[in-house]
Write a protein that binds this DNA or RNA. Structure first.
Lengths: 284, 284
DNA sequence: GGATTAAATGAAATAAAGTTTCTTTTCCGC
DNA sequence: GCGGAAAAGAAACTTTATTTCATTTAATCC
């Protein structure tokens, strides 16, 4: 049932693409099975565009690199892949259980796509920055607030000085004290949320490093941040809002946490163990 | 286990390979899902062999190039399911990117397992109860706080009277006003968290329906709740704490939200649409 | 038992592919 | 027509895959 997720997406987005990108899209739609064995050069020649356009095309459809795009395409063509955009959700007379399965399916698909959206070098940079950070601000509102709060929680557990509240004005006050070496993590699916953007800019002016967790592609936050941790573009039923994007954001926070933990882990073990005994006793 | 043709082939040929190639084979067999995102360099380092050996390995198993090998592997892997307990996480010299992949993989696996942990009748019951609920309390602490907060947020969006704060004493005060027909949603992975258990019991005494989102199995919460939405037991690196359990909890909240939305959806559309215009304008 | 050859391996060189940057072009609003 | 923004390609650059070559290891034969 769920064949052709990326292809579908390409078809849908095609009309909004620039001319050169649309040429690439057309070729792919007509010759999908050939693409996994083609290089950017091949594809650019066949489509009648430049190699750079091929790369741009990938970002436009929300995938981090041409390589990732090929991987996803192969998965899809081998035809059991998950349809991230399979939001036929709210349609018919679905039972709760069926809905549960669909939701789970969509969330799984989003995580699958998450790997393709991330640039490993950006991640490396992010971890380095975290390790040097004196204090960290997480900020996200609405659906992205959950990920921000989770980041706050997790990094606090690691011993960082970290702050997060959904209150814009409060955050503004805190951000005013940011300095070089500090980190501001802005989380926004679309990258267009005004509050997040403004705070990010402010943090940047103050000299802090801005890390964005946002969709690959035409996200303003994507362009302005110092370091971008890309999330895949997941279509959403506009009546529900995107439920899957929260998953990939949380997943990113998990990864940041694990990676940072991994690097400072040893030095943490002792104090943690000692605290652990007391903590266990206090835990209710 | 699914019939993995290349992997099987590798396993079969392994005994006849040279030492270095066998190392490569072993790594691939143990970490197949990571390989498509690895370069020859990555793989050679992880396997403890040279890049040249990786290429030779591909030829040995009868595949012309490393790239082709990866393509075939992806095709094959897209048909196999994930091992939830594959927590080879935090192994020595993992790069952030590798950790990201592993984390993502584990989270995906957890979601995959989530389907089998849930009893559909319990879910049906839960939805019915929500639809009749006068007010809803969500409660979870620590890692489970995120899911509780998300439930709070989502059901508020649906127009429910809902409350959630991690403050036990505050919740106690609120729970004192619960009555028959109200709902208390307790979230705890282990089901042993004292605060959650006590609050759940209190809510039950007050006549509210207690819904638990907790691990299937030896969870006290599981036994005492009126309705249990089971989550799968996911092994966790005890040094990290379970990161995946949060995912399945959130997924459950998503499903509840979508299912409830689905049932009351039509009646909501009008007010939502009207509010939507104003809301869009206000959104920053 | 030492010389000889073949197989196995990794280091380094090379080739190919992917990505970024910079410049040019095109188009739009003034 | 001019200034600025968006789009596109050419070229520079980086990364990745592959080949070549030198070294090691182990077995084989006088």
């Amino acid at each position: 049932m769920s064949d052709a997720t990326i292809l579908k997406k390409i078809d849908r987005q095609k009309s909004e693409m620039s001319e050169a990108e649309r040429k690439v899209a057309s070729f792919i739609l007509n010759n999908a099975h050939l693409v996994p064995n083609m290089t950017t050069k091949d594809l650019s020649e066949k489509a009648g565009a430049s190699e750079a356009t091929v790369i741009r095309f990938c970002k436009t459809i929300g995938i981090g690199s041409y390589k990732s795009f090929k991987l996803m395409l192969v998965k899809e063509l081998s035809n059991t892949s998950i349809d991230v955009n399979d939001f036929s959700l709210l349609q018919s007379k679905d039972s709760p259980y069926e809905l549960f399965n669909k939701v789970t399916h969509v969330n799984r698909g989003a995580l699958e796509a998450a790997v393709s959206a991330l640039d490993r070098r950006e991640l490396d940079k992010a971890i380095d920055v975290f390790l040097e950070a004196d204090s960290i601000l997480f900020y996200g509102v609405g659906g992205s607030g959950a990920a921000a709060a989770d980041g706050h929680y997790k990094f606090a557990k690691l011993g960082f000085r970290t702050t997060m509240t959904p209150d814009f004005h409060f955050m503004l006050s805190v951000a005013a004290h940011l300095k070089k070496g500090d980190v501001f993590v802005g989380i926004s699916t679309s990258g267009k949320t005004k509050d997040v953007l403004e705070l990010a800019r402010f943090a940047q002016v103050r000299g802090a490093t801005v890390i964005a967790i946002t969709n690959v592609g035409k996200s303003p936050l994507y362009k302005e941040a110092d370091i971008v941790l890309g999330t895949p573009m997941v279509e959403h039923e506009n009546r529900i809002g995107s439920i899957a994007s929260k998953m990939v954001q949380m997943n990113m926070i998990d990864a940041l946490y694990v990676a940072v933990f991994h690097r400072i882990g040893l030095s943490l073990e002792e104090p943690c163990k000692k605290a652990g005994e007391t903590a266990d006793r206090l835990k209710r």
